[in-house]
Amino acid sequence: MTADPDLDNGLPIRLLHDRVLVRLEGSEGERRSSAGIVIPATASMGRRLAWATAVGVGPNVRAIVSGDRVLYDPDDRSEVELHGREYVLLRERDVHAVAAQRVDTDSTGLYL
């Protein structure tokens, strides 16, 4: 696993199989729209996907590397605390999209 340097200050961690460890972007409380309007955490919305940054990947992960931004469903996640910080553990198949400089714009990103 290629890991975030912030994780190196404690016990070594090795992700197994197709697991992806991500750090959440922003907070889960109130957020701002692109126009700058504050949306409170209590606002009811439909199913909303969230972005996070991959900080570690297991050996069988094929499309994600540490540092990529990934889009996932916050309802399908497992939270974990490592070295006093909150992370989310996902399977690669639970990631809906990857945003990275190396992503080829002509490719669909699908694999079988």
Rank of each mutant, 00 (worst) to 15 (best):
Ile37Arg: 15
Ile13Ser: 00
Ala41Glu: 15
Ala52His: 03
Thr108Met: 02
Asp8Tyr: 09
Leu24Asn: 11
Asn60Ile: 03
Val61Lys: 02
Ile39Gln: 01
Tyr111Lys: 08
Asp106Leu: 12
Gly46Met: 01
Asp8Ala: 13
Ile13Phe: 11
Leu24Arg: 12
Val103Gly: 01
Val98Thr: 11
Ala54Tyr: 06
Leu49Asp: 11
Thr2Cys: 03
Ala50Tyr: 04
Ile39Lys: 04
Arg91Asp: 12
Thr42Tyr: 12
Ser34Val: 13
Ser34Leu: 13
Val22Asp: 04
Gly36Arg: 09
Thr2Gln: 10
Asp104Thr: 08
Ala54Asp: 07
Leu21Lys: 04
Asp76Pro: 01
Ala3Val: 12
Thr53Asn: 08
Arg102Phe: 10
His83Glu: 15
Arg62Cys: 07
Trp51Ile: 08
Asp4Phe: 09
Val38Tyr: 00
Ala54Leu: 06
Val57Gly: 02
Pro74Gln: 08
Ile13Arg: 08
Leu15Thr: 06
Ala97Leu: 02
Asn9Met: 00
Tyr72Pro: 00
Thr105Trp: 01
Leu90Lys: 01
Glu86Arg: 15
Ser107Tyr: 04
Val98Trp: 07
Leu90Trp: 05
Gly46His: 00
Arg23Tyr: 01
Leu82Arg: 09
Arg85Gly: 03
Val98Lys: 04
Trp51Leu: 12
Asp94Met: 07
Ser78Tyr: 07
